[in-house]
Computed example of a mutant assay.
Amino acid sequence: MIEIIESGSFNTVQDLGRPGYRDIGVSASGAMDPLAVRIGNILVGNDENAAAIEVQTFPFSLRFDKRMVFAVTGADGNPHLNGSELLSWCAYLAEPGQVLELKQPPRLARSYISVGGGLDVPVVMGSRSTSLRGGFGGNAGRPLAKGDRIAVGEDAEMVMLPASGLA
């Protein structure tokens, strides 16, 4: 489980989307930077289509409630884990209670947070992506907000160095 501590508008749960429903008025949704989602998921050992957090309004922070692997991809949101600066596009291991913070990137628009096991939200029309226009998918069809708790799927066994040892 992860808990959202701070979030601006429009930060949502996204995967690679739900193509094939436009004929009934449903947009594909999905991440705006699918390559960043794919790579983030590969870094943490997930299927490339696992649900991740799309952060487009900053600052953003979350707390891990259990030990889990994570990666931040996309725009360089200057990620910090419990105050220690991290590199984007790398996998790290968070311990229970640690806080991940992202700040406004100097360029580009969106960062993605992938966690081992992916975000465990309901699948709607073959996707876990949030459709804000439709009001479904992701986190009950709405942006993430302070206090939201998002379940995480089962993570495969991974051997990782703790993030605290890398900073």
Results as ranks from 00 to 15, higher is better:
K103Y: 13
E48M: 14
I39G: 01
A31H: 12
A71C: 09
R107F: 01
P96R: 03
G97V: 03
G30M: 06
Q104I: 08
G77E: 08
M32K: 14
S61L: 01
R63W: 09
G30L: 07
K103N: 14
N46S: 05
R63D: 07
A31K: 10
M68D: 04
I42Q: 13
L86C: 03
R107D: 02
F64R: 12
V72A: 02
S84F: 04
A71T: 07
A51W: 08
P105E: 00
D47Y: 12
A94G: 01
P34H: 01
A71P: 10
R38E: 12
E48F: 14
K66N: 11
S29V: 01
V69R: 10
G77K: 05
R38F: 09
A91E: 04
A75W: 01
Q104N: 10
P106V: 02
F64T: 07
E54I: 09
F60G: 10
R67S: 15
L35V: 08
S29W: 04
G25A: 11
S84W: 02
L102D: 10
A91S: 14
L43Y: 08
V99E: 11
C90F: 12
S61V: 05
I24V: 15
P96F: 03
G30I: 07
Y92Q: 06
A94P: 03
E85V: 07
S88T: 15
D33I: 01
P105W: 01
K66E: 13
G30A: 11
I42K: 14
Q98I: 00
G30S: 08
K103W: 11
L81W: 04
R107Y: 00
E48V: 14
A28K: 14
G25I: 10
S29G: 02
D65C: 07
P96Q: 04
V37K: 08
D33M: 00
G74H: 12
L81I: 08
D47K: 14
R107K: 13
P79L: 04
T73C: 08
P59E: 02
G74M: 11
A75F: 02
S84G: 03
P59W: 03
F70Y: 12
T73S: 05
K103C: 06
E85G: 00
G83N: 00
A71V: 02
P79H: 02
N49A: 14
S84C: 06
F58Q: 06
S88K: 09
R107T: 01
L43V: 04
D65S: 15
